[in-house]
């Protein structure tokens, strides 16, 4: 089995309080994993550790590349982070430069860079934004620019830290399906931290964290039916799932249905 992310015996403490202790996690290449848990379960810490922003104990391996002080450069070729608030992380004054930045660092020739920028812009339909400042764009456009920069980077693993929080519903659907398509086309692995459980049903694997420990993991549909545990943790259950469960309680429905039209059809049958 091809495991692209291997986290072994990972420990981290903040102000002498352990956040993660002997934490282990393995993730398969090409999968889409969502990490869920209450505020302060250790999700953001885990992502920061994966991005080498905090000192850690234990091993972190991505595509067999170990993360240490000395191997940063090689390690960062494998992984890319999409954040919630991209404004902090824009480096360039134009979208074009933002996409080209990583290519310049990879020492591609000017022609190669120009072609790559153009093809990425076409693929994501952002040609009209290339000369704008990334700071001037709307929230959704900013995230798409970040995805464009990610495509130029060509990482094996993409981390999403509440990336879609501030995107309105229509754009969210667009970005999610875009990411899913890219994952399939390029066999990328996605690890997503979110509170929005509507996003989670798109993933094929789900990990529930609490106090730095894995409480539940498996396919989202399976995990999300553990209503009791999730409720205790304060994890929000997607509207359609909790509605299905409630309708079952009232004997109005027999199964879990995610699509509203379909559900309305099935009630009282």
């Amino acid at each position: 089995m091809d495991e692209i992310v291997k986290i072994e015996n990972l420990s981290f403490a903040y102000l002498e309080k352990p956040v993660l202790e002997k934490f282990n996690l393995k993730i398969k290449r090409g999968s889409w994993t969502s990490i869920v848990g209450p505020n302060s379960a250790g999700k953001s810490t885990l992502l920061k550790l994966l991005m080498g922003e905090l000192q850690h104990q234990g091993t972190i391996l991505i595509d067999n590349q170990i993360l240490t002080e000395k191997t940063h450069q090689e390690y960062y070729k494998k992984i890319y982070l999409l954040t919630e608030n991209p404004d902090d992380k824009f480096i360039s004054e134009t979208v074009q430069d933002e996409i080209a930045f990583v290519l310049e660092n990879k020492k591609k020739t000017p022609q190669e860079i120009a072609e790559k920028v153009k093809s990425i812009a076409q693929e994501l339909q952002i040609e009209h934004l290339l000369h704008k400042s990334p700071h001037q764009l709307s929230g959704g456009e900013k995230q798409i620019v970040c995805i464009a920069a990610m495509l130029a980077h060509e990482p094996e693993v993409v981390l999403m830290d509440e990336t879609l929080n501030r995107i309105d519903f229509a754009q969210k659907e667009h970005i999610l399906s875009l990411i899913n398509k890219l994952r399939k086309d390029r066999n990328m692995t996605i690890i997503m931290v979110t509170h929005n459980l509507e996003e989670i049903v798109k993933a094929d694997h789900m990990v529930v964290l609490d106090h730095g420990k894995i409480v539940l993991r498996g396919h989202p549909y399976k995990v999300l039916q553990e209503e009791k545990i999730l409720n205790q943790l304060g994890v929000e259950i997607p509207f359609m799932i909790s509605l299905s469960l409630k309708l079952q309680y009232y004997n109005l429905l027999d199964e879990i249905v995610l699509d509203m039209d379909e559900m309305v059809k099935k009630i009282w049958v």
Partner: peptide, 28 residues
């Protein structure tokens, strides 16, 4: 949306509620 869809498909006149549980009780 749920209330509206039920009203359309099932030909009902459920009131709009701001709490799901109230809506479910109405349906029941």
């Amino acid at each position: 949306s749920l209330t509206q869809k039920i009203n359309e498909k099932k030909n009902l006149q459920l009131d709009y509620r701001d709490d799901v549980n109230d809506l479910l009780k109405d349906m029941y």
